[in-house]
Simulated assay, not measured.
Amino acid sequence: MEKKLQIFLQSGLLDKYILDESSTSESLKVEHYIETYPEVAYEYLKLQEHLEVLAKADAIEAPNFVLDQIKSTLATETIPVIKMARSKRRTPWYGIAASIVALLFAGGYYMKSEQNKALLDENQVVVDEIFDLRSDIEDNNTKLDDLMRQFMKLNNPETEKYVLRGNSRAKELKTVAYINAVEKTSMIDVVSTPQLSEDQFLHVWAEMNDHFVSLGILDPSQKDMQTLPYMEDALGISITIGPKDDTKNADNEVAEIALKGKNN
């Protein structure tokens, strides 16, 4: 370390710095040595003192008449005072380097944070899509199970198939009912329907010995099989078109069929 200081002190860089003749890189090096090594700081102060002494020694005293003229001029003229700009202290090179490193670190941290945020957003989207897909799969499995059960019921040897066609008042009407007396299930498939107004509905009825029992209202827009209540002693099935709270009568009946093995 002492050898390094000796080489620096003998290089003449400190003298050039005092005389303001050093380059930018040389100045940064000198300032680093001044702030790091007390020996260099001491030599720097000594050189400054010597320079000040030399300046005073070489100074030439101005004649008295010059001073009198200056005082006379100041008394008669108003001369604006110009503020001298204070010389800024040079920033040590390691301070600049530290600032650059800090900026690079901050920029890298910001970019990394943004990348992590984007990655988290992408992961969340993937997770949401997986949950949606899983939900769709579960819904499809449920629908497949329902279809499988319906298929098994329809293909059960005990299931009777009944086709109900509309009369002259509803020629476009066609439905197919599936009734299983063993498992006590009843379903109906709406194949086609006539044009209905907003206040008209398709009512399904079960014909009993001395009265009719409502089995509900059919939804023409539903493409899947619709379940109906099973009536143990039903003699037949009929369909009417009328208001939602309509009752069964001969005027609104558009289709009917007797169940097998039953007496009308």
Rank of each mutant, 00 (worst) to 15 (best):
T185L: 02
D132H: 13
R134N: 15
D132E: 15
L235A: 06
T175E: 09
N141S: 08
K161C: 11
L202E: 02
L133N: 11
A234Y: 03
D245S: 12
T159C: 03
D246F: 06
M187K: 14
L144K: 10
D224Q: 08
H211M: 08
P243C: 07
M152N: 12
L202T: 01
N140P: 12
P229E: 02
L196W: 08
N141R: 12
K248F: 15
Q195N: 14
D139Q: 13
K143H: 08
R149A: 11
I188N: 00
Q226N: 04
I217E: 07
L164M: 03
K161G: 08
K260W: 07
E253K: 12
A177V: 10
G166P: 00
L173D: 02
R134A: 15
A170D: 00
M231Y: 09
D136N: 08
H203N: 06
I137Y: 13
L228K: 02
I239T: 00
Q222M: 08
D189Y: 05
Q195D: 10
N141F: 07
E253Q: 11
Q222R: 07
L215T: 00
N155Y: 04
I239N: 00
N209V: 13
T193A: 09
I188P: 00
T159I: 02
L164N: 00
E158R: 06
D210H: 13
Q222Y: 09
Q150W: 12
L235G: 04
E207C: 11
K184V: 04
D139H: 15
L133Q: 13
V191S: 05
E160Q: 15
